[in-house]
Design a protein around this nucleic acid. Sequence first.
RNA 1: GGAGAAAUGGCAGAGUGGUCGAAUGCGGCGGUCUUGAAAACCGUUGUACCGAGAGGUACCGGGGGUUCGAAUCCCUCUUUCUCCGCCA
Length: 424
Amino acid sequence: MLTINFIKENKDLVLERLKIKNFDASNILNEIIKLDNNRRNTQQILDKNQSELNIISKNIGQLFKEKKIAEAESAKKQSIELKEAIKKLSGELNNIETSLKNKIVLLPNLPHSTVPKGSNEKDNLEVSSYGSVITLNEQALPHWELARNYDLIDFELGVKLTGAGFPVYKNKGAKLQRALINFFLDEAIKAGYNEVIPPLVVNEDSGFGTGQLPDKEGQMYHIGLDNLYLIPTAEVPVTNIYRNTILQAKDFPIKQTAYTPCFRREAGSYGKDVRGLNRLHQFDKVEIVVIEHPEKSYKRLDEMVKYVGSLLQKLELPYRILKLCGGDISFTSALTYDFEVYSSAQKKWLEVSSVSNFESFQANRLKLRFKEEGNKKPILAHTLNGSALALPRIVAALLENNQNNDGINIPKALQEYTGFKIIN
RNA sequence: GGAGAAAUGGCAGAGUGGUCGAAUGCGGCGGUCUUGAAAACCGUUGUACCGAGAGGUACCGGGGGUUCGAAUCCCUCUUUCUCCGCCA
């Protein structure tokens, strides 16, 4: 959420930047500014009336003490009129504030000045790559066939238990899953992140804080009976730990990591893109979340990007890093780097991580602020996060890229976690 | 799930209708004293909104109500604690 003051002071900049996200804000911006002026006026009148009423009320008390009953009674009459006016005004103010908020909430975050123009993922900018694309022979199998042949993952069984997109991991497939989780967590801790195990179900306030609500509730599974949501990513509960918090500047950076299953409805996706592990309703992910001083957040973003790259290097997976264009970057993000690994039997790139700086967009929703010396007012912090990493597509790439006549080789860094060097 | 008690500032804890944004203690910050520190003493110490400023308004778990006036009374929701039941 952008702050109203920023919008008013930088209207042209907001308009121009949101165009990069293909968002035409001209109408809504005018409405917002009009509503805000309205809000101020109403507030002023209301405060004045309220102040008057307070004075009269105090007087009445005094008059009663002095037994000046008649005077007190006439003051009462006066106050009743005021009270009605106040009631009306505060109702108005409430309505104005609600519509103002409903409008502001529709505005996406401003993209960083380096975000390229573009309409979809084809316009993303490749900023670097690592390793070379592996060419397999013609008998190479896609991961879903490897998973079946070696009895690692049972997609049909998941359909029986739950539905499509809820696979059952078995045998060495299950062990590999657990190994990756532990590997990612241990690496994150080595890199200075503190591990947390958050709830997998969150309330509405949390969903609002990180930007999933009110707009994208279709993405999340909703537990209607209790009005709770299954988390689509650990970002939601972990960032919300600091909702409604005022930190000290010396607390930065706050670096957290969490493993959680993630639940996504992914309504509307179809076809070969959802085959096998490519897109699931439930998947495992280790997330890194950082809360940082505004002046240091982009430096921290670079550090996070470097860190995610180091994980992929240890797993010996070729990858490329994309800077997302305006059309592909998320509603809440100012700058996002996607990591894609090459899945050599499917012959395509799979997104395995998304590392973003949200600047103060989430912080404003979260009321996540900090105090700094020389500044009496609390300032909005910056929030960042990244997948480190999402498991299914990593598994897909590992299985496909490392297959040979003997089986599937486990990368060295992972062997102490799996306890085996090959799947055969 | 049943019965009862409670929710106040960073923490502890007073306050049962008017001058209470709220005593007191602890903590934090600034100062005096000191070579330095501690102790002692003095001062200060929340958030949001409106206002150029002076200043004003709101907030005592959330929401609603009674009243000229609510931290204080009523309704409701949430959370916590104690006891009982069930249970990984």
